[in-house]
Design a protein around this nucleic acid. Structure first.
Lengths: 236, 236
DNA sequence: AAATTTTTTTTGTGATCACATATTTTTGAT
DNA sequence: ATCAAAAATATGTGATCACAAAAAAAATTT
């Protein structure tokens, strides 16, 4: 009668978490917080050894990420972290502007007090992470902040598409995140988002998130130009 | 020296097509041309028997489609074709309007003569399928027409997101496609798209594709309302 | 007859193996 | 030393098996 379940009956785990799911979550998290480098190769056996799982779950998780375009497959089925060129990055930028703009309009419309309180909390966490200067924590907090806002938009399918683009960007976000100037401009955009949501101002909300996305994109492009010589055709 | 490869040297298959890929393609095609019903259950063993493949390739293909949100998984990992409610369908409509609008603007800007010729060809095929009244052929031609246009937009990643939404819509497109009035209005929109592309008129192109998407969405909603009684909460 | 329990069947997951092919390393020739 | 050939190693795919859990069917009780 003292069993653990009784203490938390309402969040009892009804669905078993498969190993495949665990591996997938871990890889996804690692990708989004920039722990993999573009072009980096991954192998099934290598990962399964590293994670202490058998090949089956790893193989399925890798295929899932491939399906989501986070990886690219060589013609011989080898898997590597996807590399983006400038055109790809701009494409993602455009898609994000339009989709996340849509989500922010919806969020501004539907937001309630509970949403606002929780978003504020996320914002504070993000601000904190920015102050401390912990890149990985900042990235996680950034995704979490945006995710919580989009949750208020109540648009599961669009959200999935957006997260997919985030997955692509993960390794690149990690490049700009340490930049102090970027962080400042980004946090300014975030505060504008917060304000627009509070005012239920749809167009201001869209404008603010556009500003956020454009800022990240511009900073990233400048950084990439510095990294490799002008004229270099190599993807990063 | 009389080997088959020599006859078609430029399209020699350089990458082996895996069974997983074949199964995935087949299921995807079946989904998009409306050969599955929403809510329909699929099993690994059932499909592998039907397709004459072993469980491994089927299982991986199913997981991939699940990852792409075309299937939903019960909490016990059973797989079924995803059912959409009205809110889901409107969400997809909004996402399509914004993303495909973006693609059409890009296409109108970048289009060259070769693109135009091929798109015209696709348009004729589509018109033909509409006249004949073959639903499955019409659906395939419709996807093919849009796909060819978006190809001119040269936006691989956005395209992937759009095709993903098509995958969701597949079973529902199949419902409205037989409707004659819908077909007429849809083909009118298609002709407007064609014209706008020819004129390189970006905003007209966006407007025309929006019209196309909205028309399909409206027809579908009307149809769904007729199908189940008012007030019914059941997803279709 | 209806509801409940028990038994049987079906199903997804994870593990392991064989195999063909890609990739890397080693060897040998020039 | 450089390059080509050969051997060795690593890798993804597909097949099959065991198992636990779920779903369906059958049996039993009320």
């Amino acid at each position: 009668m003292n069993s653990d379940e009784l203490q938390l009956p309402h969040i009892r785990q009804v669905s078993r978490v498969t190993q495949r799911e665990q591996v997938y979550r871990q890889l996804r998290e690692a990708l989004m917080s920039g722990q993999f480098n573009p072009g980096q190769k991954l192998t099934i056996r290598g990962l399964s050894d590293a994670l202490g799982a058998s090949q089956m779950p790893v193989r399925e998780a890798l295929h899932r990420l491939s399906a989501e375009n986070a990886f690219e497959e060589t013609k011989t089925s080898r898997i590597r972290i996807r590399s983006m060129n400038t055109a790809n990055l701009r494409e993602i930028r455009d898609a994000r502007v339009t989709l996340e703009g849509l989500l922010l309009e919806r969020a501004a419309r539907r937001m309630n007090d509970e949403d606002m309180a929780e978003i504020r909390q996320e914002y504070d966490d993000l601000q904190d992470a920015a102050n401390v200067g912990n890149t990985q924590r900042y990235l996680r907090a950034n995704f979490s902040f945006h995710r919580r806002i989009y949750q208020a938009a109540d648009a599961e399918l669009i959200m999935a598409a957006v997260e997919n683009f985030w997955l692509h960007m993960g390794p690149y976000f990690a490049l700009v995140a340490p930049d102090h100037q970027h962080l400042e401009r980004s946090m300014l955009a975030h505060s504008r988002i917060l304000e627009a949501l509070y005012e239920h101002d749809e167009s201001a909300a869209r404008a603010a998130v556009t500003e956020d996305i454009m800022e990240a994109s511009t900073s990233l492009e400048m950084l990439l130009q510095q990294l490799h010589f002008p004229g270099s055709k190599q993807s990063v």
